[in-house]
């Protein structure tokens, strides 16, 4: 992961970058007496891949749709690319890309026609054929959209979200329904976009996805952020003690597993089934949302 990040090319010289792509303070969204988002703070730097994790109903989609300008907020301060999405104009929309969660539009058009049509809205779009290649739909370019499988349809949604060469891309649970190979390909695509300097905000409930892709991530529960960090440090993972088990179920927690193993070996313990484990991202995540649940 570290290697992938550091291999990212330097940012295009001469192009202006705001330091912060997304800035949210005290965001609230209420429906009657129900608070979908309840005092959420979020900062995403330009060029980052940021993952928003959380169970269903935690407020992920509501938050993302407010950032996209699709929903109005009740209170709080929101800035995306330096603009309030609630008051944004079409020039701002030309700089953002939205990958929708579930759509069935354009059923009677072909993949190429659909991508080309949307490309025509933007001032500096990518070439339609290039985008179709990027999402791996070249074989399906002339197929009617209604004949695509669920996973292919989602990849088309990704193509439509990035054809305008956006500075920031929002992806709401982008790989739901993908088979494992399609997910790997999708992750490659996201890394490629990120390599070109695109800021990525994605929501997911796949922890391996967040771990594989995200520079930073945040866990959202009951409408607020309960933890934030890198995949390695989230919720104190890096500093948590390791659990060493050996000899048919004996175990010990330690900050220094190497020293423990040396000591056990010198004591002549049976180490044939030795394991060393740290809390997985999943353990950390479940503990975090459990606290709120």
């Amino acid at each position: 992961m570290t290697a992938t990040r550091s291999s990212r090319p330097a940012r295009e010289p001469g192009r202006l970058y705001a330091m912060t792509a997304i800035h949210v303070r005290g965001l609230r969204k209420t429906y009657g007496t129900f608070s979908a988002v309840d005092g959420l703070d979020l900062t995403v730097e330009t060029g980052e891949i940021f993952a928003l994790l959380g169970p269903n109903g935690a407020g992920k989609t509501t938050t993302v749709e407010i950032l996209e300008g699709h929903r109005r907020r009740t209170a709080g301060e929101v800035s995306v690319l330096g603009t309030d999405p609630g008051r944004a104009d079409r020039h701002w929309r030309a700089r953002i890309g939205i990958v929708l969660q579930s759509t069935s539009d354009a059923a009677d058009l072909t993949v190429h026609e659909t991508v080309r049509h949307l490309a025509g809205f933007y001032p500096r779009p990518r070439l339609p054929a290039e985008v179709i290649e990027l999402v791996g739909l070249t074989d399906k370019a002339k197929a009617r959209v209604r004949t695509l499988s669920g996973g292919q349809r989602r990849r088309l949604d990704v193509a439509l979200g990035i054809v305008g060469r956006p500075d920031i891309v929002f992806l709401d649970e982008p790989t739901t329904g993908f088979d494992p190979e399609a997910r790997r390909q999708f992750w490659e695509l996201i890394r490629k976009l990120s390599g070109e300097g695109t800021t990525i905000l994605l929501t997911t409930h796949y922890l391996d996805e967040a771990e594989a892709l995200a520079d930073r991530l945040a866990v959202i529960a009951a409408g607020a952020i309960v933890a934030e960090g890198t995949p390695a440090t989230l919720g104190g993972r890096a500093t948590a003690q390791a659990r060493v088990t050996w000899s048919g179920g004996r175990s010990e927690h330690t900050a220094d597993p190497a020293a423990l193993i040396v000591r056990l070996a010198s004591e002549g313990a049976d180490l044939s089934d030795l394991t060393v484990t740290r809390p997985t991202l999943e353990d950390t995540y479940l503990a975090l949302i459990g606290e709120r649940g």
Partner: peptide, 12 residues
Amino acid sequence: DGTLKRLRGTPA
């Protein structure tokens, strides 16, 4: 079917 939602997120 999402046509309007998609357009609303573009410069259209």
